[in-house]
């Protein structure tokens, strides 16, 4: 398992992460980000894409 963290002070609820890695990130009906901090290693590629596309670089992979 791997861990990911979103800096809520940066996150602007763009929703780009939810496009790249829908198993980990999703937007609730109020348009606010919800996410699973721990995810399976097989999703690492998708999560890296989410990190790349987040316009405010709010997503961080933890060791």
């Amino acid at each position: 398992m791997k861990t990911v963290d979103v800096d809520r002070s940066l996150c602007d609820n763009h929703g780009q992460c939810a496009i790249a890695a829908p198993e980990v990130f999703r937007m609730n009906p109020d348009g606010v980000l919800e996410y699973e901090p721990t995810f399976d290693d097989s999703l690492l590629g998708e999560v890296e894409e989410a990190i790349d596309v987040c316009p405010v670089q709010a997503i961080f992979l933890k060791d």
Binding site: N13, H14, G15, A18, I19, M27, N28, P29, G31
Partner: peptide, 11 residues
């Protein structure tokens, strides 16, 4: 001016 989940729905 719609929440991002609407955009995701249309996407």
């Amino acid at each position: 001016a719609l929440p991002a989940d609407r955009q995701l729905h249309y996407r």
